[in-house]
Amino acid sequence: MQHRVEQAAAYVLHTRPYRETSLLVDLFSLEYGRLSLVANGARRPSSKRRHHLQPFQAIQVSWRGRHELKTLQSSEVPSVFMPLTGTALLCGLYVNELLQRLLPPAEPCPRLYLYYTYLLNELQHQQDIEGALRTFERQLLETIGYGIAFDAIQADISYTFDPHIGFTPVANALGPYLGAHLLEIAEDRYENLIVRRIAKRLMREALSLVLGDKPLKSRELFLNYGRSA
Rank of each mutant, 00 (worst) to 15 (best):
V5M: 12
Q7N: 15
A8V: 13
A9P: 00
L13Y: 08
R19H: 11
E20W: 01
S22E: 05
S22V: 04
D26L: 09
L30V: 02
L30G: 00
L37C: 13
N40Y: 09
G41I: 07
R43S: 03
R44L: 14
L53K: 07
L53S: 06
F56G: 05
A58C: 09
Q60E: 14
S62M: 10
R66W: 03
H67V: 00
H67T: 11
L69Q: 04
L69I: 15
T71E: 09
S74I: 02
E76S: 12
P78V: 03
M82P: 00
G86T: 04
L89K: 01
L89C: 02
C91V: 15
G92S: 07
L93A: 09
Y94D: 06
V95S: 05
E97Y: 10
Q100C: 15
L102Y: 11
L102G: 11
L103M: 09
P108C: 09
C109R: 05
C109D: 06
P110G: 06
L112G: 08
L112C: 10
L114W: 01
Y116H: 10
L119N: 11
H125T: 14
E137L: 01
R138Y: 08
Q139P: 00
Q139S: 03
L140M: 05
E142G: 01
Y146G: 00
Y146T: 02
G147P: 07
D151E: 15
F161W: 11
P163G: 03
H164R: 15
H164L: 15
I165W: 07
G166A: 02
A171L: 14
G179W: 03
H181K: 05
L182T: 11
L182V: 11
Y190K: 03
V195I: 09
M203S: 14
E205C: 10
E205K: 15
S208E: 13
V210C: 12
F222H: 12
G226I: 15
S228V: 13
